[in-house]
């Protein structure tokens, strides 16, 4: 093959015995225009159909992204076919391009898979009051890319799903069914263990642990049940409207800490009064415990309510009350 042959063979096309130079380029141009029109049409139709089906826009963008990648791939194949380039180059180029694309889209796809993972493992559900890392709020939506949180200032923030996999999650919403499940599991395990005689020293400790855990779980469960019963009794004379996030099965047990000056007697009296005052709003009287002493005394408040919106609505007033009570005189 001489030097000029490469340029001549570039895009040459055979019609019967006749070789027409640059015919391939012409065909390529026409097909590119056709493809362009087709993609425009396709995206329009897709957008309409997705809107009808109520699929969120981030899903549409994802589909568009993948569609474009496949189009690019198709165009590359077309190029090599029409311009008579050796096919082994495709494998070469696609290897490079593939690596580049995959590195670039790593985060997006990671996010996507994290979304699937979260919906499967359910560390939280819609309507839970949670703390993800340092962000605290009510979960409004879990989509495949983002989890939407409503902060205490009622702003809605989107947290990437991958973030939820990496940081600590505190779920302030507790479901009774979770505890009931756990208790049932533990009870059956302990029953099984009784049938086989325990001899090994490790087994004795294990058995003891399981019993302890069961005790712990039962204690938790009873606490929740107690609260729920109290709420149920109160229900008829409730005149407050609940938000849509209230569920029979779930309650919110929210904790936060305040640091107060070192006057335990006075603090205790004042905080008790505040708790009594807030018993009306939160169905159950809030509690507080002391869990730390340094320059200040650290009090932990425990607020129990069936409605997560209560916390968003009233926390500000609660803080204000503490401030007013403690520093007014």
């Amino acid at each position: 093959m001489e030097e000029g042959d490469f340029l001549l063979s570039l895009g040459s096309f055979f019609v019967g015995e006749w070789e027409i130079p640059f015919m391939g380029l012409l065909i390529l141009g026409i097909t590119l225009i056709l493809i362009y029109i087709l993609t425009k049409l396709f995206s329009k139709i897709m957008r309409k159909r997705l809107r009808v089906k109520g699929i969120p826009p981030d899903m549409y963008n994802g589909i568009k992204f993948f569609f474009r990648i496949f189009m690019a791939f198709g165009i590359v194949i077309l190029l090599t076919y029409l311009l008579n380039i050796d096919q082994k180059y495709i494998a070469l180029i696609s290897g490079i391009v593939g690596t580049a694309i995959s590195f670039a889209s790593m985060k997006a796809i990671n996010n996507f898979i994290a979304g699937i993972w979260i919906t499967l493992t359910t560390p939280f559900e819609i309507g839970d009051y949670v703390k993800i890392g340092s962000k605290e709020g009510l979960i409004i939506e879990i989509s495949l890319n983002y989890t939407k949180l409503m902060y205490q200032d009622k702003n809605i923030t989107m947290i990437p799903n991958i973030e939820c996999l990496k940081t600590n999650i505190i779920n302030y919403t507790i479901s009774t069914t979770w505890f009931a499940d756990q208790i049932f599991k533990l009870e059956s395990q302990i029953e099984d263990a009784k049938e086989e005689k325990i001899k090994n020293n490790d087994d004795v400790i294990n058995f003891k642990h399981q019993k302890q855990k069961l005790e712990r779980m039962k204690k938790n469960y009873e606490q929740i049940k107690e609260v729920q019963n109290a709420i149920d009794e109160k229900e008829p004379n409730l005149n407050k409207k609940h938000s849509k996030y209230v569920d029979d099965d779930r309650i919110v047990r929210y904790t936060f800490s305040v640091a107060l000056p070192k006057k335990p007697g006075k603090n205790f009296k004042n905080l008790e009064e505040i708790c009594k005052k807030w018993a009306k709003e939160f169905e159950i009287q809030p509690k507080f415990i002391v869990l730390g002493v340094d320059a200040h005394i650290h009090y932990y408040f425990i607020i129990i309510t069936p409605d997560p919106m209560d916390i968003i609505d009233y926390m500000d007033d609660f803080y204000k009350d503490i401030y007013k009570k403690l520093f007014s005189d």
Binding site: A91, S94, G98, T99, I101, F112, I113
Partner: peptide, 20 residues
């Protein structure tokens, strides 16, 4: 050739995505 390139791209993408 097409098959190899297709699978290599998709394989790399899935591999990276599943790392987390």
């Amino acid at each position: 050739e097409y098959l190899v390139s297709l699978t290599s791209i998709s394989g790399i993408i899935i591999g990276f995505a599943a790392t987390e």
